[in-house]
Write a protein that binds this DNA or RNA. Structure first.
Lengths: 227, 227
DNA sequence: AGATTGGTTTAGGCAAAACTAAACTTTTAA
DNA sequence: TTAAAAGTTTAGTTTTGCCTAAACCAATCT
């Protein structure tokens, strides 16, 4: 068995990839400051300063001390590629393995670090080359292009509008279980029955006529289109 | 978006898991010496000595200096679980994504480190709870039980036996491409036409009557059953 | 403007995981 | 049975990636 060496050719560490992801999420083009990055990563300031130096050495970011960090073109390309993997895996976990929305994030966070370009494209094909993941988030394409971001928050619509849920923000387990309780999924359709002028909570009427209220913090994470 | 911290609960590092895997492969029950482990992992002696200490602290192995290392019960359980993941992922890559035999090992080596017991079992179910992977190797079951190891090397059969390929050893890319050239896959059936007394190469007759020779190094990695 | 506050960076530690060189066992062979 | 060869461990270094404490810049508030 001529297989002595584990021939993994990892071009980036997981930590590096996590920083790149965080920067993309927080800033995109714009510069991000140390504190925000530290909070997002879940590390302390000095760890971030240090990590940023390593990333700068690899030309993944540009940093100005005391000012902020931003992704280079190379860094942005890496970020979208990781995001592509993350969202493809989330799609796989939900559509093929039958996981619920709320369960897939942490697993996809591990899977996204697996490095094999061929696998990513075979996976995409296997899933039917989706352009949105189970939460409705756009899946970056192989060339880095980002499909349209669907919908607007419920608040931005008016009473008696007919709406369809096209995207939900990943706002933690409690949010998702509440969605499940209310039987709201991607594609659900409602009419906007009323908006409370007191706390801006929203009342919806389901297709079957049932009425229910959504708190502001719920509705601000639900994105819809008007039909 | 209350998602500041990446909540990966990794109980073992990848390096640790690789050592455990290697020990299982080399020794199973028996003790393994430093050199063999170093060769298998692709590291030098001192790195191994050090790693073994870390593993011993976690009660995954028992080590006697200058004598050897062996897995504890806990270590063996971890090893079979990793092997289960590895072989399930290989099955996925071949059967669902359409990869060839030879391509999947390195990718599965990354996927096997993803830690989510729920995912492993959903994946197994999704694949039809297989007990052998695409190479014919047994997939350890959730309780740690190892399904039967199929077949014996071609050498052990006699002229005019009718045979079916049930397993191939993972002997590197060249071996697999040669199999492909010869159109040999799991389930292929042959009769053993002759055995060279000179170099113990083997001549097979395919179902369609075609005759061809296999070198000893090829045939020793092909496992068959007699029909 | 000057001082206090807040955010950032440097300095110095620690653990994992690899390495080389040197010391130390164990085995083999004269 | 002792000496050389082979294999293993210790000692000390490196890099990644995190930490705390202390120093340092920047922005605000009186």
């Amino acid at each position: 068995m001529p297989k002595p060496i584990s021939s993994q050719v990892k071009t980036h560490t997981e930590s590096e990839e996590n920083y790149i992801k965080a920067l993309y999420h927080l800033g995109g083009e714009k510069a991000v400051n140390n504190g925000a990055l530290a909070h997002r990563i879940g590390a302390k300031g000095p760890s971030v300063t240090q990590a940023v130096k390593r990333l700068a050495n690899k030309n993944l970011v540009e940093a100005i001390p005391y000012k902020g960090v931003k992704l280079t073109e190379k860094g942005t390309a890496l970020a979208t590629h990781i995001l592509r993997k993350h969202r493809l895996w989330e799609t796989f976990l939900v559509e093929k393995l039958g996981f619920g929305w709320e369960e897939v994030h942490d697993i996809a966070e591990q899977l996204e670090h697996v490095q094999s370009p061929e696998m990513v494209e075979k996976l995409a094909k296997y899933l039917g080359s989706p352009i949105h993941d189970p939460h409705g988030d756009p899946i970056p394409q192989p060339n880095g292009a980002i499909p349209p971001i669907l919908g607007k928050p419920l608040q931005q619509f008016a009473t008696s509008d007919t709406l369809r849920v096209v995207r939900v923000e990943d706002a933690g387990t409690d949010f998702f279980t509440q969605l499940q309780v209310l039987n709201i999924t991607l594609g659900s359709e409602f009419t906007l029955a009323s908006i409370s002028s007191f706390d801006s909570s929203i009342q919806l009427r389901g297709a079957d006529g049932t009425l229910f209220w959504l708190s502001h913090s719920m509705s601000s994470n639900i994105y819809v289109i008007s039909l």
